[in-house]
Design a binder for these strands. Structure first.
Lengths: 194, 194
DNA sequence: TAATATACGGACCGGTGGTCCGAATTGCCA
DNA sequence: TGGCAATTCGGACCACCGGTCCGTATATTA
């Protein structure tokens, strides 16, 4: 680890950043994240094949590192949206921010979501999002339902769904999402009958 | 094609069925559909490597054929549920049937959903489901919203989500789903204010 | 039974994510 | 400044994947 012994070697951090940058560039340029291979990334970074693996463990690690880097602005935005008043506003702000983030980083998020087995959920980011959203939903629903509903809301902004809707204007998707949030956070008609 | 010239050779259909059966067996036994390869399937069917490809085109074709075979019962069930009264009942019946189907065929559906680029939506089955569900939702929402809401409802029963929820009892997932359907089909509070 | 269309098997291909190790580079200390 | 140990580099290498190809075996037809 970084804690023990010597300092981290300069070339190591330089290369790690080069790899990160190359991966970002290639993914942004690609239509299908599937045709950005590790070799491509290493080559584009001007680095040997082993280097990305040493720096990030495996493909998923690299993608996650990239997502984390890009997600800082998003995290700020999410924290800001927290100041809104009601649960509907807060949840809408959150999901809308996530939606815009995924639109802005489509290849990356697409890659991250189909990678490996059950990967979208192993991600620590997903855990945070879900916990946060579940709290909001729990203001209106029973805890068990809130948990599932939060998953469902996040599923409604999955990258491949967005992609599939991609030919129609994003406006419409955002409207639909807003409608969904409104409806879910209006409460359960079975609990609060008219 | 089957239409022209001679009859279809007997060994061809025998092999195709053997491949289908072997694939079904291996997938059901597997934890991760990713570790059932085409070679494995061919070997388990006692058949050469090329045969599965000749019979089904490619991996996705094989999986789809398998899903179609297994889905006959489901289709009947869906048609039956259609006789229910209100939109909530019909949508609940439909999504619950889909959920149970995916629980009963987890590896298969898991494989089918991660396969290839944007695959869950290119599937013709998905199209049918979505069209049907959108019709029901449209009884309560504006058409544009109905389209998206139908996608969102289907996203709430995606295999990997179910898988991720898999350690908790399916009861709870089904309850959550029922709650979601109820809430979505209760109508938009913005359109029909209290 | 001969002829012909068809399917069979498995060697083969390009490409993938990931590993490994001798060689080169770096940071530390004298 | 020079030497030494630790660390990283590069890219050959590996197992395996989905998919193709074609000489050979087999089913069908006449």
């Amino acid at each position: 680890m970084t804690a023990a012994g010597r300092k981290e070697r300069a070339d190591a951090v330089r290369n790690r950043e080069a790899v990160l940058a190359a991966a970002a560039r290639l993914l942004d340029a690609a239509d299908d994240p599937g045709d950005v291979s590790m070799n491509d990334i290493a080559a584009a970074a001007g680095v040997g094949k082993g280097t990305p693996f040493r720096g990030f463990g495996d493909r998923i690690g690299l993608l996650q590192a990239l997502a984390e880097q890009r997600g800082e602005r998003l995290r700020a935005e999410l924290a800001a949206g927290e100041s809104s008043s009601g649960p509907v506003e807060r949840a809408t702000a959150m999901l809308d921010a996530i939606l815009r983030f995924k639109l802005a980083n489509r290849s990356l998020m697409l890659a991250l979501e189909n990678a490996g087995s059950g990967s979208p959920y192993r991600n620590s980011t997903y855990g945070r999002w879900h916990r946060h959203l579940a709290e909001i939903v729990a203001e209106v629903h029973r805890p068990d339902d809130a948990d599932y509903l939060a998953h469902a809301l996040l599923a409604a902004v999955r990258s491949d769904l967005i992609e599939h809707l991609g030919d129609q204007p994003p406006e419409r998707t955002r409207d639909g999402l807003a409608c969904l949030v409104r409806v879910v956070l209006a409460g359960d008609p079975a609990d609060r009958p008219r």
